[in-house]
Every structure is written in C-alpha cells, then in structure tokens.
Lab assay of single mutants.
Amino acid sequence: HTCEKCSTSIANQAVRIQEGRYRHPGCYTCADCGLNLKMRGHFWVGDELYCEKHAR
C-alpha cells in the first residue's frame, strides 16, 4: 500500500481509512491540528480527515 498523505510505501502497519485508501499510523492525523486519530476515529470534511473538534 501507499500512504495517501506522504505518498511513500507502507511497509508494516497500515491504517485503512476507506476502501483502497491507506495511511501510516503516524500519518493518520487531523488535517487541522495534527492530532493522531488512532483510537479516536475520524470525520470527513470534503476529502480531508479531521478530529471531532475540528470537523464541526
């Protein structure tokens, strides 16, 4: 898989955010504040991922 955020190959663990879309665990972050979304879930606003606070 290729990380959709940093565009590099994912060798080990990948986070599947949608069918066919993956990120490194470290790239699974809010587009606004950079908070890691692991164990928090994500919210779509347009084509970007946000934490609950910044999705509003």
Rank of each mutant, 00 (worst) to 15 (best):
H1K: 15
I10F: 02
L37D: 06
C33I: 02
C3D: 00
H24V: 02
R23T: 09
E48R: 10
K5W: 02
A14M: 03
A11D: 15
G46Y: 12
V45A: 12
Y22H: 04
S9N: 10
K5Y: 15
R40P: 14
T2M: 03
C27H: 02
R23W: 04
H42W: 07
K38G: 13
A31V: 11
A55R: 12
I17D: 07
F43C: 13
E4M: 13
M39W: 03
Q18P: 03
D47H: 08
C30R: 00
D32H: 12
R21H: 11
T29A: 09
E19L: 07
T2W: 04
L49N: 00
F43A: 07
N12Y: 02
Q18V: 12
E52Y: 00
H24S: 06
C6W: 00
T29R: 06
G46N: 13
Y50H: 10
H54R: 02
P25W: 01
Y28L: 06
G26R: 14
R21Y: 11
I17F: 09
G34H: 14
L49K: 01
L37C: 05
Y28H: 07
C51I: 03
A14D: 05
P25L: 13
H1Y: 14
E52Q: 09
W44Q: 13
C27I: 00
F43N: 13
Q13Y: 01
K38Y: 11
P25F: 03
C3L: 00
A55C: 09
R21I: 11
C30D: 00
W44S: 12
E48H: 10
S9K: 14
D47A: 12
W44M: 11
A55Q: 12
K53L: 08
Y50I: 07
A11H: 10
V45D: 04
I17Y: 04
T8P: 03
G34S: 12
A11K: 15
R40C: 15
K5R: 15
E48M: 08
R21L: 11
K38N: 09
Q18C: 10
V45M: 10
E19R: 09
Y28R: 03
L49F: 05
H24D: 11
N36A: 09
G26S: 13
L49T: 07
G26N: 10
L35S: 12
R40N: 15
H1N: 15
G41N: 08
K5P: 06
G34C: 04
C6E: 04
L35V: 12
K38L: 01
C27W: 02
H54V: 02
I17M: 04
T8W: 10
Y22P: 03
D47P: 10
A11P: 14
N12D: 15
V15F: 04
L37G: 06
I17V: 09
I10A: 08
Q18L: 10
D47M: 10
L35D: 14
R40G: 15
Y50M: 13
A14P: 13
M39I: 05
H24W: 01
P25N: 08
H24E: 03
M39N: 13
V45E: 12
T29I: 11
R21N: 06
R23D: 03
D32R: 14
K53W: 14
Q18K: 08
F43D: 13
T8Q: 13
Y28T: 13
A14S: 08
G20Q: 02
N12H: 15
H54F: 00
G41I: 01
G46C: 07
R40W: 09
K38P: 11
A11G: 12
H1E: 15
V15I: 09
A11S: 14
A31E: 13
N12K: 05
N36Y: 07
V45Q: 09
G26F: 14
L49E: 04
Q13C: 07
G26K: 14
R16S: 13
H24F: 00
G46D: 07
L49H: 05
S7N: 05
A31L: 14
R40A: 12
L49A: 08
W44A: 14
T2R: 04
E52D: 12
I10N: 09
